[in-house]
Amino acid sequence: MDFIKTTEADSNYNQLEQMSVNQLLTNINNEDKTVPLAVEKAIPQIEILVNQVVTKLKTGGRLFYIGAGTSGRLGIVDASECPPTFGVPHNLVIGLIAGGDQAIRKAVEFAEDSKEQAWKDLSAHNMSNKDVVIGIAASGTTPYVIGGLKACNEQGISTGCITCNINSPLSQVAKFPIEVVVGPEFVTGSSRMKAGTAQKLVLNMITTTTMIQLGHVKGNKMVDMQLSNNKLVDRGIKMLMKELSIDKENAKNLLNKYKSVRLAIKNYNHGN
């Protein structure tokens, strides 16, 4: 199969500058509606990769994301939300971006064009074959990401990818590829739009499913979440009230004592 970049194909719309605000918003929304359906088609691929991630993390491994630009930022967002949401260590899920942390806010010119830099960035984390590395690139052609996965394969490290083109060079390199084909963007080539949305949805699915499989959710609640602000403390109190059938004051006292929803439930049940 020939490799065709549908992410770079001409938009299905033209004369965008002549559209009204309402027309622009409506047409963008119509395109966005197609993204979850594209993700749905990729669930079999996502499942295979998630099973690999769960297996690796259960044996003491870590999950790494590598990407450039929007893709790199999305990986960092997903990684950074795991500790507060699921109470896991900050080094369990790690996002790396071409150009380093400064590239999170501002584009770093030509950072994505180095084939060697990703492995250098990963090597700073003492990689082992217990780890799994997922390369994120809408186009599936980013040298930083492809080079990183190639190096991981040579070291016996499991590799996956999230891309929005079929049969891309990145998919050929990744052992567990995910291809979510969203088609042409509303603004031709602006892959921060549908492709970025698709990547975000898949990342949500990967880490949420993995963390549930690892036991960080009870029922449907984030019992291991970090109580790092008043909103989360209040959420924790409500969880305890519902789970233990106790009033707000008792729930508050339990949370103050144990500093963890899970520990509060465990110790309350043991004490009663």
Rank of each mutant, 00 (worst) to 15 (best):
Ala174Pro: 03
Asn153Arg: 11
Ala138Ile: 11
Leu122Thr: 11
Gly147Asp: 03
Thr159Trp: 05
Phe86Lys: 01
Lys115Phe: 15
Asn165Met: 03
Ile162Leu: 15
Ser139Cys: 12
Gly156Tyr: 12
Cys152Leu: 10
Glu81Met: 08
Ala107Thr: 12
Phe176Ala: 08
Val93Arg: 00
Val182Thr: 15
Pro84His: 08
Val133Cys: 08
Val181Ser: 02
Ile134Asn: 00
Gly160Phe: 03
Gly140Gln: 05
Val132Ala: 09
Ser158Ala: 15
Ser114Tyr: 09
Ser114Trp: 10
Ala174His: 02
Gln117Ile: 06
Val93Pro: 02
Ala137Pro: 03
Pro177Val: 03
Ile97Phe: 11
Val133Leu: 09
Asn167Ala: 14
Phe176Met: 07
Cys161Asp: 03
Ser139Thr: 10
Val173Pro: 01
Glu116Arg: 12
Glu154Asn: 14
Asn129Met: 12
Gly99Thr: 02
Ile146Arg: 05
Gly95Tyr: 05
Lys115Met: 15
Lys106His: 14
Glu112Thr: 09
Val181Leu: 04
Asp113Thr: 12
Glu112Leu: 09
Gly135Ala: 12
Arg105Trp: 13
Gly87Tyr: 00
Gln172Gly: 13
Trp119Asp: 11
Gly148Phe: 09
Thr163Arg: 01
Val145Ser: 08
Leu96Arg: 04
Ser139Phe: 07
Asn91Tyr: 07
Lys175Ala: 15
Val180Cys: 01
Gly140Trp: 03
Cys152Asn: 07
Gly87Cys: 05
Ser168Ala: 14
Ile146Phe: 09
Ile94Ser: 01
Glu154Pro: 02
Ser128Glu: 10
Val145Arg: 07
Tyr144Asp: 10
Asn126Cys: 09
Ala103Asn: 09
Asn91Ser: 12
Thr163His: 05
Lys115Arg: 14
Pro143Leu: 10
Ala111Met: 09
Val173Ile: 15
Pro83Tyr: 01
Asn165Trp: 01
Val181Cys: 05
Thr142Met: 04
Ser168Asp: 08
Ala111Val: 08
Gly140Phe: 08
Ile94Met: 07
Ala151Cys: 07
Glu179His: 00
Asp121Leu: 12
Lys130Cys: 05
Asp131Ala: 13
Val180Ile: 12
Ser158Phe: 07
Ala98Ser: 12
Pro83Phe: 01
Leu92Phe: 00
Glu109Asn: 13
Lys150Ile: 13
Gly160Thr: 03
Leu170Val: 07
Lys115Gln: 15
Val88Phe: 00
Val180Trp: 01
Val180Thr: 03
Ala138Phe: 08
Phe86Trp: 04
Ile94Leu: 12
Leu96Asp: 04
Ala124Glu: 15
Phe110His: 15
Gly87Phe: 00
Gly99Ala: 08
His90Ser: 14
Lys115Thr: 15
Cys161Thr: 06
Gly95Val: 06
Cys161Gln: 00
Tyr144Pro: 09
Ile136Arg: 01
Glu154Ile: 06
Leu149Phe: 05
Ile146Lys: 08
Ile136Asn: 00
Ala118Thr: 10
Asn167Trp: 05
Asp101Ser: 15
Ser114Cys: 09
Ile162Phe: 06
Glu81Ile: 04
Ala151Tyr: 06
Ile97Pro: 02
Ile97Tyr: 11
Asn165Ile: 02
Gln117His: 13
Val173Lys: 02
Lys130Val: 04
Glu116Val: 14
Asp113Ser: 11
Gly95Met: 06
Ile104Glu: 10
His125Trp: 14
Thr85His: 03
Gly135Arg: 06
Ala124Pro: 05
Asn91Arg: 03
